[in-house]
Amino acid sequence: MLALDIRNVSKKYEHFHLKNVSFQLEKGYIMGFIGSNGAGKTTTIKSILNLIRLDSGEIHIMGKNMDQHEVELKQEIGSAFGDINFYTRTKVRTLTNVIKPFYKNWDDDTYHKYLKKFNLIEDKKISELSTGMKVKYSLALALSHGAKLLILDEPTSGLDPVARDNLLDIFRELVQDGEISILFSTHITSDLEKCADFITFMHNGKIINSAEKEEFVDAYRLLSGTKEQLNLVKEQLISYKTNLFGFTGLIHTKDFDSSQNVKSAIPNLEEIMIYCSKKEDTQDV
């Protein structure tokens, strides 16, 4: 079953265009949503949550159309925005008491279980929580109302490596039972190497690729060689960088001819992101 199904979503702004965005997330998995700053990740997330009006396209969550079943589906969605804070001068306890009546499946026991697990103190004000704690508080709220889909916008940005690792472990734990699915956007690709099952890569409002993580990485090869070798493969390369000794470039695995004796390696997500973005930017110019 698909937890999230985004079909041909488009949205045009004066200076930005979300172009025909489509991707799917299977129930029980983690999808990492990567892209550079301004790629359209937050706009896509806002469109999933129906915070912006789409020009065209459809969003289905748990098989239901978001536009038609918004209130019902939002009972099943938990969200966190890493860079937006709400009611920072309010105590955790007060804010929870305001939020919980909105959710029909709210469970106080679960809430207290997660408060304890995440070491959250109810008497603290939101502003007194660290960045990581704020994300954990959002997670505690989402899990207490039985959210099945977690949509997290840059939850790991601004966290130290320890807090990030800790949060990623929590994500893995949450999806273990196959009930909860997570879509989280980030520009920190190493997070995804640790915990994502699927990767969706966006650049300039377009989806460049969306696939299972190993398949995603396997679709590319990182080539390096001399300037003479560059001329052999230049046409097939997605993009490349030259230096004193030669070049480094990214190629689709299907376009790579191993008989050319160019040194190849499996790229990491960061390299894929950098070279694909470079190509798009060159094309846009």
Partner: peptide, 14 residues
Amino acid sequence: SQNDLIFTSIMPVT
């Protein structure tokens, strides 16, 4: 200042 618009919009309300 408290971002009430987004805070309220992400909850299950019309």
